[in-house]
Design a protein around this nucleic acid. Structure first.
Length: 228
DNA sequence: GCGACAG
DNA sequence: ATCTTGTCGC
């Protein structure tokens, strides 16, 4: 398996917010740049990114798994570690995970055609979840796939794969609960950047032909547990 | 005022 | 996210 290993020397070109107030200000500024309609070309290479933390939380590991969009087979991987720079605060998760993710994506020789992010996109109280943040910072199309709900309400959905229910918050559709496998809990899918909601749903079903989680996320997840 | 709260 | 084994069920 091809891999690149970078040390704890990562940096982000512009200063990263340190306080909650700063992060909220940045979030308010960046949220306006999110595009929630389809705006991407042919999908050849897709990539998923996942973050993990050391036991004491001081180090952040980011794993990127690049796959062929048709065969869903791993084509390349990146694993890097850098100091953690922000605490976990619900609604501000991206300020904890995005910097390492963006840097790891930058280590790919070629930018992928689509990012699959383990977290919410617009299904967020201020419409700026992790997938939006990473999408806007990289400029790449991104979709958010979360294993649980952050905000919003949805009606019951069918038990079979493909069943879905729109996720509503303050009279707005912010994403969808989507069943990718019969009898399992639904995933929460929402646009990250440059992808519309219906396309997000179609793509997640395509990328998760067998298991509950999309293959890209499964691979990135497995990779991120391989440090040490 | 009280509970909920991605990873 | 992390601490963590076996076990029940499709």
């Amino acid at each position: 398996m091809p891999a690149v290993l970078a040390g704890m020397d990562g940096f982000v070109s512009e200063p990263w917010p340190t306080t909650e107030a700063e992060a909220r200000a940045v979030q308010e500024r960046l949220r306006r740049l999110v595009v929630t309609r389809d705006d991407f070309g042919p999908l050849r290479r897709i990539a998923a990114v996942d973050a993990h933390f050391s036991a004491d939380g001081s180090a952040t590991w980011a794993a990127v798994a690049e796959l062929d969009a048709d065969s869903l087979e791993l084509t390349r991987s990146v694993l890097l570690c850098q100091p953690t720079r922000f605490p976990y605060i619900p609604g501000l998760l991206s300020f904890r995970e995005a910097p390492a993710m963006v840097e790891a994506i930058g280590l790919l020789p070629e930018p992928p055609d689509l990012l699959v992010i383990d977290g919410q996109g617009t299904a967020h109280p201020r419409r700026f979840g992790l997938a939006c943040h990473v999408g806007v910072l990289t400029g790449l199309p991104a979709i958010g796939v979360a294993k649980s709900r952050l905000v919003g309400r949805y009606e019951d959905l069918g038990e079979t794969r493909g069943s879905r229910a729109l996720l509503w918050h303050r009279r707005e559709v912010i994403g969808a609960a989507l069943r990718t496998r019969d009898g399992t809990n639904p995933l929460f899918v929402s646009p990250g950047h440059r992808v519309g909601l219906e396309t997000c749903i179609q793509l997640v079903l395509r990328f998760a032909p067998r298991w509950r989680l999309p293959e890209p996320i499964r691979l990135a997840d497995a990779l991120s547990r391989m440090h040490g």
